[in-house]
């Protein structure tokens, strides 16, 4: 915590002073337009209904609720990954990575500090998006609070977990744009943000299961759309936590060598 809190405080100050509106508007627009697309398609093409295959694959007939929860989770994941995975490459670009590596502080508390601060801003941003969805007429049933909280924690661990190896990749190749966007586009297809992964061919479906966001999303939907008790969501929650922690462990192992490569390259990214 000795590292996490100062990092949290520093990032908080930076965020308040120079909030990156462009990024926010960008991700908010993606979320809102995804819900908007589903809404218009649902009414103009589906006539206010979705096909029977959807209910079978999704476990709910509520197409708009399904897409809205997915879009919120997508926005949450993208923003969190942008914060956490890009923290170190940003330090590298600003020339502070070396002083970071020199300091005796460990990586995990530093990244947790970044992550906790990111959570506070991201939650506010996601609420803005959900407010829009409700404004255009999407109705989310009252969720099960305990399951929702557990799913939220699991989802946070999941995005945090995949951000760490991603950070290692970014600093070792000295590139963020291609890496992050390829992940986002792949997650969009594989994790089931806007459609049930059951629609996908089997190999892609299994690839999606390897990402902890997929199971986090199932738990989030169980909590919000189905009012599921904790016990019902438990298998997904455990799977998500296990996968998230596995990614985290691998990521932490990779960070050391990645930092060495980054510094050898001379921080010229």
């Amino acid at each position: 915590m000795a590292t996490a809190l100062p990092t949290l405080r520093r990032n908080w100050l930076v965020t308040m002073r120079a909030y990156q509106w462009t990024y926010f508007v960008g991700t908010l627009a993606t979320g809102i337009l995804t819900v908007g697309l589903a809404y218009l398609a649902f009414h103009a093409i589906g006539g206010g209904r979705a096909g029977g295959g959807f209910a079978a694959a999704a476990g709910t007939a509520d197409y708009l609720g399904y897409v809205t929860v997915g879009a919120a989770a997508s926005m949450f994941s993208v923003r969190m990954v942008l914060w956490v995975a890009k923290a170190q490459i940003t330090e590298q670009r600003e020339g502070t990575l070396e002083s970071q590596v020199l300091a005796p502080a460990r990586r995990l508390p530093y990244l947790i500090g970044v992550g906790l601060q990111a959570l506070t801003t991201t939650v506010v941003e996601v609420v803005v998006m959900l407010a829009f969805a409700i404004m255009i007429g999407v109705r989310l049933p009252a969720p099960d609070p305990v399951t929702l909280l557990a799913a939220f924690v699991a989802a946070s661990v999941a995005v945090f977990g995949i951000s760490v190896p991603l950070s290692a990749i970014m600093i070792s190749v000295g590139e963020a744009h291609i890496t992050q966007n390829t992940l986002f586009v792949a997650m969009g297809l594989l994790c089931g943000f806007t459609f049930p992964p059951g629609y996908l061919p089997d190999p892609l479906r299994w690839l999606g299961e390897a990402l902890p966001i997929t199971s986090a999303l199932r738990a989030l939907r169980a909590a919000t759309l189905e009012h599921a008790p904790l016990s019902a969501a438990a298998p997904d929650l455990l799977l998500c936590l296990a996968l998230g922690l596995a990614y985290l462990a691998v990521g932490l192992r990779l960070l050391g060598p990645a930092e060495r490569i980054a510094i050898q390259r001379g921080g010229s990214a």
Binding site: F42, G46, A50, F54, A58, Y63, G188, L189, F195
Partner: peptide, 18 residues
């Protein structure tokens, strides 16, 4: 990849009756 995602996203409503 985005095209595939879009296709699957609108697929449920195109399967709706009518």
């Amino acid at each position: 990849l985005t095209l595939a995602t879009t296709y699957y996203t609108v697929l449920p409503v195109t399967e709706a009756p009518g």
